Simulated assay, not measured.
Amino acid sequence: MQFPSRDQVPPAASALEWHTNHLRLLDHRSLPEARVWVECRDADEVAEAIVQGVVPGAAAGVVAAYGIALAARRIGRSADWLAALKPDLTLLAGSSPASAQLGWVLGVVIDRLQRLPSSGADVPELLAQLAMDLHLSDREAARSMGQLGLQVFKRHASQSQRLLAMPGNLAGGSLRGLLELARAAHGAGLMEHLHLCADQDAGALRLARWALEQDGVPVSAQVLAAAGQLMKGDNLHWVVVGAQRVAANGDVISDLGTYALAVLAMHHGLRFMVVAPSSAFDVGLEDADEIEPEDALLQRDGRLQLDVTPAELIDVLVTERGVVERPDAGRIAELLSPLRLH
């Protein structure tokens, strides 16, 4: 990994650039004071960038797909691509084990590797194209989440509203969904101000604040401990969070502090919205009660990193496939049904 490369920054939505033989990542840790780019030339450097927080862990999915493309370019040729890339797939899977989106993306990559033509395929180029397709799909999903979230705001109020969000748990598709939602709500005259609060992941807060300030969205940064007082005295209307993983019944696994925000929101009569791409759903997890507090999913290095917010505390769950109000197992199953288009 090469540090640092200071450069002119493209539009705020572009924190990732693909350059055929390397990947450039906007270092979230440096924002907004400096705009530093990190270059990754193989899967090891991509995994290191995820672990070190250059990109938030839950944003690792698309980044990891490019990492596999880089690994394939390094290998060049192979009679068994799945076997050749297995060490890189394992390494990237371990860079952010709590991210359902990362697991989903790597599953798509593995499926593609299992369906390669018998001969003649340029596999490095094929995997690069797959990563670009996933990247584009991720952006389109964010735009859909923003528009669907805006429709929810419109249904509940016609006047400008004040929001509180926790971007530390809005990484990846969730974070981009929040950014699109904030821009859309501000453009429609439905958002007066957005408070961003964070505890663990200050990098995601800096990224979100910087990106929104580029578009003139009124935003401020707050410590997470101030959330209760803001709810009490600042005339807030919504609390918006994201998800690393969503269980089949709608329980949400996300950054530590999400559960406390949900309880505070209920106490103060605020609506609680979860923004999450469909790739965050883990239908194999019936509910979050299956996860013990000491589970590796919730901890890293012996310290609690994530918590569980039960579905009954969630008013609205927004995905690119649609909106679920008062989520439960039946509504989640309907949302994810292959027969449902949108």
Rank of each mutant, 00 (worst) to 15 (best):
H195N: 07
L236Q: 01
E180D: 09
E180Q: 06
L230V: 09
P218H: 07
E192A: 12
L236F: 03
W210E: 10
H237C: 04
V219H: 05
L178M: 11
E180R: 01
H186L: 07
V246R: 09
L190S: 08
G216V: 02
A184T: 00
S174E: 05
Q200S: 14
A221Y: 01
Q229V: 09
A198G: 11
N235D: 09
A225T: 06
Q222A: 15
L178I: 07
R183I: 09
A182Y: 03
D215M: 02
A202P: 11
L194M: 10
S220I: 12
L230N: 07
Q200C: 13
G172A: 00
R206K: 13
A243T: 01
V241L: 10
D215S: 08
A182C: 06
G216R: 15
G189M: 07
L181Y: 01
V219F: 00
K232N: 13
G203P: 08
P218Q: 11
H237P: 06
Q229Y: 13
G228N: 10
R206S: 14
A208W: 02
L196R: 01
D215I: 01
V223W: 13
A227V: 04
A211R: 09
A182F: 01
P218S: 11
L230A: 05
V223T: 12
G173V: 05
R206F: 08
H195L: 15
L212K: 08
C197W: 02
D201Y: 11
E213K: 13
G177H: 05
G216K: 09
L230K: 05
L181R: 00
A227N: 04
L178H: 05
G173E: 05
L175D: 02
G172K: 00
R183C: 14
W238K: 00
L181P: 00
H195C: 11
A226G: 06
D201H: 12
R206W: 12
H186A: 12
D234E: 14
D201E: 03
G216W: 01
L207I: 15
S220L: 11
L194Q: 05
Q200E: 15
L207F: 15
D199S: 12
A208L: 06
R206N: 11
L190E: 04
L190F: 09
G228Y: 09
G187N: 14
L181W: 01
V223N: 15
A226W: 06
L194K: 02
A182T: 04
R245Y: 10
G173K: 13
A247N: 03
A198P: 13
A211K: 11
G216Q: 15
S174Y: 00
R206T: 07
L190G: 12
A182K: 05
L212I: 14
V217S: 11
D234K: 10
H195I: 13
A225P: 06
K232R: 10
K232M: 14
R209D: 02
H195V: 11
G233M: 07
R176P: 12
A225Y: 13
L212C: 13
G189I: 02
A185R: 00
W210Q: 10
L212N: 10
W210R: 10
S174H: 01
G233I: 03
R176F: 12
H193V: 02
R183N: 13
G177I: 12
V223H: 12
V223D: 14
V223F: 15
H193D: 06
G189K: 04
L178W: 08
A188Q: 04
L181T: 01
